[in-house]
């Protein structure tokens, strides 16, 4: 039974309920009704079309980042540097847009070039972590973390320095771009259908690469057993680097969309923590591309739904982060327990 699908399902159910129970205990401890909190989070995320559109705004970068991470995870790499790759994508996009502020070039062309620019810069930034790993022997976790700090410092330097607003030195960000440089939104909503399409296409491409190509199979082979892959004739370090490039490109697009579809300028917190959240989503779905969409959507819904908590219940909205983290922990924990029982059995 434990080995069966049903058995696994039971364990996942237990994990989910444990996470809910744990968070409920926290809520009770601060004197709040867990039922009201969950109800507010749900109505706050799917209670109206406008709210669901906000969920999608959060879903787009999260899905892009998750899709990218699926590739690096498949190659057996922990690309913690994804947060910085989003930031560099945003910087690349901002740079391109700045070149055209005074020009009469078609906005469509400018936006396309800007997103492409973000994608390229994100990929280049990711290649740094890849090269540090390949040629410098620096573990990608440490290299990535270091590069994240450099990315933040670079953003601050640009915002307070060369790209500052006239007469202003504030972390509020750069001068907003003209409206023409914004990806068009659905009438009355903040979501840009173009951004949504880009994110969905990206995850489909990743699914196709990993499940339908020889290239993807090689990446997975490198991830499963790098020595065996090498012996089978796969150029392993190249494939590690390819996976970094793909992930960086997708994270770069996420950063590009944060600039062209959400903030319309560069701000210090442009990555909004989507890199780290994407890591959690990727872990939760056990690196299976097919589940990226629903789980990323669920996490985005938690993010947006939790905004209701401080407004309606005077609770801190970081509760959604607690729930997300605890969910991942319990899923990993119950999976560990299940494996142990299965082995004993």
């Amino acid at each position: 039974m434990l080995k069966s699908r049903l058995g696994g399902f039971v364990f996942q159910l237990i994990a989910f309920l444990l996470a809910l129970g744990f968070v409920s205990l926290i809520l009770l401890a601060v004197g709040a009704s867990p039922f009201d909190a969950y109800k507010n989070m749900i109505t706050g995320s799917v209670g109206s079309g406008r709210k669901f559109a906000e969920v999608l705004v959060s879903f787009v970068p999260l899905l892009l980042v998750t899709a990218g991470l699926l590739v690096t995870f498949s190659a057996g790499l922990w690309n913690i540097g994804v947060e910085g790759q989003i930031v560099l994508g945003a910087i690349g996009t901002t740079w391109v847009l700045r070149q055209f502020v005074e020009s009469s070039v078609s906005p469509w062309l400018v936006i396309s070039l800007a997103i492409l620019g973000g994608m390229i810069v994100g990929a280049i930034w990711a290649s740094f972590a890849g090269m540090l790993k390949t040629f410098g022997g620096v573990n990608e976790i440490f290299g990535g973390l270091g590069l994240n700090f450099v990315a933040t410092a670079l953003t601050l330097y640009l915002i307070f320095g060369p790209w500052k607003r006239d007469g202003v030195a504030s972390m509020s960000g750069t001068e907003p771009f003209p409206e023409a440089f914004a990806l068009p939104q659905l009438e009355g909503f903040r979501i840009s259908p173009w951004a949504l399409v880009i994110a969905l296409v990206a995850v489909m491409i990743v699914y196709f690469i990993l499940n339908g190509t020889y290239f993807g199979l090689k990446i997975i082979a490198v991830g499963k057993n790098i020595r065996a892959a090498y012996l089978l004739g796969i150029p392993t370090w190249q494939y590690s680097l390819y996976s970094f490039l793909i992930c960086g490109a997708l994270a770069g697009v996420a950063g590009a969309l944060q600039v062209t579809a959400v903030y319309y300028r560069l701000i210090p917190a442009i990555s909004s923590g989507y890199g780290y959240l994407g890591l959690m989503v990727a872990m939760l779905i056990n690196y299976q591309a097919i589940w990226a969409v629903p789980v990323a959507l669920f996490f985005a819904a938690l993010n947006i739904g939790s905004i209701q908590l401080p407004i309606v219940m005077k609770l801190d909205s970081s509760l959604s982060g607690v729930l997300q983290g605890i969910l991942v922990l319990f899923v990993l924990l119950t999976e560990g327990v299940r494996q142990k029982i299965v082995k004993k059995g």
Binding site: G8, Q12, L13, F16, L284, N286, P294, F298
Partner: peptide, 12 residues
């Protein structure tokens, strides 16, 4: 593991 985890997502 794959289908199992997936169900969690769907369930959620």
């Amino acid at each position: 593991m794959r289908t199992i985890l997936s169900r969690l997502a769907v369930m959620a």
